[in-house]
Amino acid sequence: MGPLIPQEIIAEGWNFLIAFGVGIGFGFILEQAGFSSSRKLAGVFYGYDAVVLKVFFTGAITGMIGLLYLSLFDWIDLNLIWVNPTYLWSAIIGGIIMGAGFIVGGFCPGTSVCAAAIGKIDAMVFFGGIFIGILLFGETFEWIKPLYMAEYWGQIKLSELIGISQGLLTFFIIIAALLMFWVAEMAEKKFPQKEY
């Protein structure tokens, strides 16, 4: 029963080889979807190309359903799956800074690696910028620490927060995503991409 490595079902030595293999799959799919182009990525914010929304939400939903089914069949122990902790304010402010970086730079970290791999120089510069940004965070850590640690809610799931089952929450998210996909398809028709 998974997850395999935390339970020492397979040796930790396999860890890095699996990481490399998972990364290859991740990078290959991102590039295939068109995430190696900042113009395609930014398209979602202007309606001309909603590939980000479609791939991101289909991926998240597939992940949710996959985990629930694997747990249903006892193939994975959900208690051993890492739930990233919620520190409300740092998640919001960090997200706002990242969102600004997204619309200014046209990439996020993962997609910049993927775009740099096929020769996009703008992606290589973006990737270089991430190093500087993280160094800046390291150097300002003591100053920002009160915000970084504020409003800690624990490793909480949204289903626990609103008091419904994980399956029911996932069902509602699927409905919401389908509505978003419908809006996205309409937007792409309404705002055709100008060729240049």
Binding site: G101, G105, P109, G110, D122, F126, G129, I130, L135
Partner: peptide, 20 residues
């Protein structure tokens, strides 16, 4: 692109992770 990268780098540490 460089400015965007700096912002994303800083935000990812404050927010304990990026888009992925």
């Amino acid at each position: 692109a460089g400015i965007g990268g700096v912002l994303f780098g800083y935000g990812s540490q404050l927010g304990r992770g990026c888009t992925s």
